[in-house]
Design a protein around this nucleic acid. Structure first.
Lengths: 252, 252
DNA sequence: TGATAGATAATCATGATCGCTCATTTAAGG
DNA sequence: CCTTAAATGAGCGATCATGATTATCTATCA
């Protein structure tokens, strides 16, 4: 049996069994443990299977079980730094739209502690946290998109049409030297609508997303006034942003 | 069972039970106490569960419910029974409006497990839980009222104006032989609007609220088609409800 | 406040699993 | 027939997961 055949066979077996111990898998694929391990590391790298200590899981199955990742509530240091920086950019008395997504959530968390702001969001996670915050708070309704924990769709867009804020804090799943992008059409629609209905547009994104464009474009660079990032970008990028009219704020 | 599977299972169990003693959890996850504790410390670190001396809590609940231990735990068995009864009244394919409040939250929690329903609410707590549910889900936006964890105000009423559901599940803080009442004007406005925009009106309230009228009236008895309660009311009350056209469903 | 039972954390031993390295086999091409 | 490169299998030390044991801590009640 050739390597490719084996890979195929393993994928199929894992899909069918949903979970197998290493020994079980070895019984089905007659090959030495060493080779099987090698195969598994490859298949894991390509995302076809999910390895755990002692066995293998079907990733599709695991994902369906955890629709929305509560790791969203985890705060990385980069996100915390960005959040702190953003906070210093928002003057008292402002109204601020906070996008869904983990980076914006962290920023929202900080802003919620102030009592001189008015926040608006369509993020379920932020609304949850807002119960214990100080700021005035408005949640835009919509259909629940479980994958991102956001309220989206026509209802959300309709509600946005009546709103207006001083600041918009937007996240992005990827950026390159052309534009900012996200994973989903409905998310992109909301982002565009937010941009239309706010004065100053601030992008919140750690630098690791640079040159990692995502599926759907929601804005060109000149659409933004500011970009808050975790680390200072290279001189080349800085120059580019200056030309586009974007002010860079590095959080470090 | 692999470690990750266990983590997964534990998360799910905690979400479903909201609170468990260590022993209860150990019965459900068959593993030595030492390993279970290790799992719990990990899950706590990632924010998936909340540990307390002697047991485990669902953090989503603690965050969302106001005065968690007091209100939620006191009548929890009554609320669970009511929720179960309500579930049996809702046929597949229905759209259901779920009011804010702890009794309705419990009912919403049960309904969320079904994949043949469309739910609508203005409750932050329910929306939070909905991230892990099955049903289609729409959240009505509005200003956050922290005391009750509800989204209220003009924005909410405006959004409601475009909606229509088959069922309305409403809670009440108090009832007497005249009417049903709640604590706050903005809540009452929403409730009235929900009544206008749904077909069949079901009141969810344990019997302890009988003869305990609250501040703001939001409905007279004939406005309701059904009343789901935890214990069978006295014959006198039953007769009264029959005269008003309200069907009583006792959960016991 | 202090005692006590139960709960928790820390430590250790054990067995299983993992990834690395190296020798061997296999296949392809000159 | 030989060379070379890729794939494979075996061995080995390192790592990880687990359960038992012990010590520490915490809530509760007197």
């Amino acid at each position: 049996m050739f390597a490719q055949e084996r890979h195929h066979a393993i994928k199929k077996i894992v899909r069918e069994h949903r979970r197998l111990s290493f020994a079980e898998l070895q019984d089905l694929v007659e090959v030495s443990p060493a080779t099987l391990r090698r195969d598994l590391t490859e298949l894991e790298k390509s995302g076809d299977i999910l390895r755990v200590h002692g066995g293998v899981l079907d990733p599709a199955y695991v994902r369906s079980e955890i629709s929305f990742d509560e790791r969203l509530l985890r705060h990385s240091s980069a996100k915390k730094a960005i959040a702190k920086k953003v906070n210093s950019l928002i003057p008292p008395g402002s109204s601020v739209y906070v996008d869904a997504g983990s980076t914006c959530l962290e920023a929202g968390r900080v802003l919620l502690g102030r009592n001189d702001l008015r926040l608006v969001t369509h993020s379920v996670a932020l609304t949850s946290i807002a119960l214990h915050g100080q700021a005035e708070f408005l949640c835009v309704g919509g259909e629940l998109r479980r994958l991102s924990g956001a309220l989206v769709g026509g209802a959300a867009l309709g509600a946005l049409a009546f709103l207006h804020t001083d600041f918009a804090l937007l996240g992005a799943s990827g950026m390159d030297n052309k534009e900012c992008s996200t994973t989903e059409v409905s998310e992109a629609e909301i982002k565009r609508s937010i941009l239309e209905r706010s004065q100053r547009h601030i992008l919140l994104a750690d630098f690791s997303k640079w040159q990692q464009p995502s599926t759907v474009t929601f804005a060109k660079w000149p659409d933004f006034h500011d970009w808050v990032t975790d680390q200072t970008p290279p001189a080349k990028v800085q120059k580019f942003m200056k030309a586009q009219g974007v002010t860079i704020h590095s959080a470090t």
